[in-house]
Write a protein that binds this DNA or RNA. Structure first.
Length: 168
DNA sequence: CAGGATCTACTTG
DNA sequence: CAAGTAGATCCTG
């Protein structure tokens, strides 16, 4: 995934599942990328973070590691969701409230975001989530209890759910 | 206006 | 069951 004109500092985040990359602006965590599937432990960048960013990165790392372990996240860094729409932010707020091991359907997410008939729009918003894992878009399934989609690759959706003990 | 990480309600093998 | 069709819905660029 190439992001040529993004701003902020990109910091590597080591896990047993590979090296994620977190990007921070002056406002907080702005995006999280999955490890490179070709070379999971490759480090794409290690820029010089501000003290605040270093502090945030520690919390991000703990949150990602906890989620990979199926555990509840204690605290999050500030999230920089600027540049997105009202509806998207509402959907992401809904996702943040889903505990590990639990799932909602796209329809339920839409309803909680205030648009009971906007299931497809909710799916669209999930697909644009810039901070997967932390904003747990993997905990949203189709109404048929089937998987639905996942922009990070369905492998990750299955793996993250399995780590939380969700059976499909 | 077309296109989605959808849903429901069909109909057909 | 699975797969296909059709229409409804609504946010996005």
């Amino acid at each position: 995934m190439i992001r040529p004109f993004t701003k902020g500092n990109l910091l590597p985040l080591e896990t047993e599942a590979g090296t994620f990359h977190a990007r921070y602006t002056v406002q907080g965590l702005a995006s999280l990328d999955f490890p490179d599937p070709e070379n999971p432990h490759a480090v794409r960048a290690a820029e010089k973070p501000s003290p605040a960013q270093q502090h945030w990165h520690k919390r991000t790392s703990e949150a990602v590691l906890a989620t990979l372990d199926g555990k509840r996240v204690e605290s999050l860094p500030p999230l920089d969701l600027e540049g997105h729409t009202e509806f998207q932010r509402r959907v992401w707020e809904v996702l943040l409230a889903i505990p590990p091991g639990q799932t909602l359907t796209y329809k339920e997410v839409a309803a909680r975001a205030g648009r009971p008939k906007g299931a497809q729009a909710a799916g669209q918003a999930c697909g644009r989530n810039p901070i997967p894992v932390i904003i747990p878009c993997h905990r949203v399934l189709a109404a048929s209890q089937k998987l639905g989609g996942f922009s990070g690759g369905l492998y990750w959706k299955i793996d993250l759910l399995r780590r939380e003990g969700v059976l499909l």
